[in-house]
Computed example of a mutant assay.
Amino acid sequence: MFSYNLKTEKIQQLSSELFAINSIIPDTVDHTLVMAAVKKGERPVKVMFYDKETQDMTILNENDSDTTTWDISYDPETRKSYAIQYSEEEQYNHMEESNKTQTPMVPPNHTIIEIDPISKQTRKVIELEEEQILTLSTRGDQILIATAKHINKNPIKYSMVNIKTGERNEIDLPIKARSGLFLSKDGQGFYFLGENTKANVNQERGIYFYDLKTQQVEAIFLQKEGFINNFMLLTNPIKIN
């Protein structure tokens, strides 16, 4: 893991202990990095906290060799992190059953946990039975999720989950997006990477904004050449002198 200073143009290696980093949130509470990463010599993806001042790495449930993390999110209002997790053993068993029956693979149970950045204590927000949570975005008291009943299969459903109660409400959206969902600062809409599926519109892949009140879709950046793999929403723009 490395950092690059835009002003000094200097590169600094932060860690050599990791095999892979699937997700990284660069600026959270007390300037701590939150990551979904794999430690060298291990398999599960774990939630990790890296203190940029002390250079200390804290691994959530470090001795748990079964639970893996699919995606992470940070809520600046609650100042807590949220992670999608599932059992690797359960996923393997479902894969074996899928191969045996030659049917689409049913996901293992997926759980969203809330993580306190100081104490590192966790709390289960919601658990979905045999349903994959593809991605999540948190803001204020709500979590926006995209889900699927089978691995790598449509249809995709979208829901709002109340962080405090875990209550889930499915919402019908004219979009097609498996990842890259980001709730706006006011929570009244979200940015997404995918397609606008409204009738009589050009269904180009790109980055869009969906207004939850007006139900209107606004194109932000359309994919003209190449392929957009992902993007990150920054609440405050980075200033470069």
Rank of each mutant, 00 (worst) to 15 (best):
K52M: 15
D186I: 02
N200C: 04
I24G: 02
S81H: 15
T78G: 03
N230K: 13
D172V: 12
S184L: 04
L181S: 02
E204Y: 08
L173F: 07
Q91R: 13
D186N: 07
V47K: 09
D75G: 04
N241S: 12
E17R: 05
E129R: 12
K39L: 14
I175K: 04
I156S: 03
I238P: 03
N236P: 01
S73G: 15
D64C: 01
F19M: 13
M95W: 11
V106G: 05
H94E: 12
S119M: 09
M95Y: 11
W70Y: 09
H110K: 03
N236C: 05
L183T: 09
D75M: 08
A83Y: 02
T122D: 00
Q13E: 15
D30P: 03
L234R: 00
P117T: 07
S16W: 01
L233N: 02
K46F: 00
Y86E: 09
F227P: 04
I126M: 07
L212K: 01
I143Q: 02
H31T: 10
K100I: 00
T197P: 06
E167T: 13
V38I: 15
I113K: 11
P107K: 10
F19Q: 15
L173E: 03
L212D: 02
V45E: 11
E127L: 07
Q223L: 03
D141L: 05
F49C: 03
D51I: 01
T214E: 14
L18D: 05
E204K: 15
T111D: 07
Q102A: 12
M95N: 08
I59S: 01
S15F: 04
S98L: 11
K198D: 10
T147F: 06
P237K: 02
T103M: 13
F221D: 11
A37I: 00
M35Q: 06
N99A: 10
D186M: 01
L183S: 08
D75Y: 08
T103F: 08
K213S: 14
G206I: 01
N229C: 07
E62M: 04
E170N: 11
K176I: 05
H31I: 06
Y208R: 01
R43A: 14
P26F: 00
L136E: 06
N202W: 03
I163C: 01
Q223H: 03
K176R: 11
N169A: 11
Q102I: 09
E195M: 10
I207G: 02
Y208N: 02
S184G: 06
G194F: 09
